[in-house]
Amino acid sequence: MEILVCVKQVPDDSVEITLDKSTGMPALDKVAVITNAFDGYALEMATRFKEAHGGNITVVSVGPEKARDTLRNCCSVGANAAYLVNDAACENSDTYGTAYALSKAVAKIEAEKGVKFDIIFCGKETTDYTSSQVGPMLAEIMDIPQVTNIIALDPAEGGLSVKQETEEGYNMVDVATPCVVTVTKPSYDPRYPTMKSKMAARKVQIPDITAADMGADASLMGEAGAKCKVVKVFEPAKKEAGVKIKEETVEETVAKAVAMMSDAKVF
């Protein structure tokens, strides 16, 4: 099967990020960039699928020049080819603009490689803006089926059998290909690159795709085309230090906790 994995380079989410007071936007200058964690799961799932059933994996990212490093990393852990949608027109796109750019990139890459993608993997969300919208929007724009929040997939008659995580458990969904799947955390972690795969990935050519190359309407992307405007960015409220309640017995502890909540008019 021909597989496409959409990836995004995001700020390292393991460090605390603060707002730049002068711009009101997150201060990201000194924050390392990494592959979005859910995209990493998506690539690992795609790679395991490829190893079990054959196929090719292409990765694509809409992003700046330095996103090339992320694509190269992807090539060291399973991807066979990579493309970077690298155009100023795409800067500051909202989720729709990104999904639109990806849909155009899909057509461009398919034409260039002479293939049709059977499965398009996306992470269920990015760890920076966590909107969970790009994958579903991409499927809608391309007018193909989608299954969100998947944790496993296998080939099935006419398409795929997909395990979708829900709040209660999971659904088994049969879906026709081509389709978009968005991936949440499966039971495994992404593999580490090997020293050899890392060195081999250095030699992979990662072509740029511009808006003009893929025939995209620049007015639908970037800040100008954004359907969503960011009005203000807030830092999450800092949690206040809690109160430890430890009485002689469990009963007394619970009674005191209830009394405190009652006093605070929690209920």
Binding site: Y192, P193, T194, M195, K196, M199
Partner: peptide
Amino acid sequence: AAIEMGLHTLEIPEEYGGM
């Protein structure tokens, strides 16, 4: 896991299959 990454082959010359 470390062997899977190839950390045991760091010192093998290229002509004998190393890096």
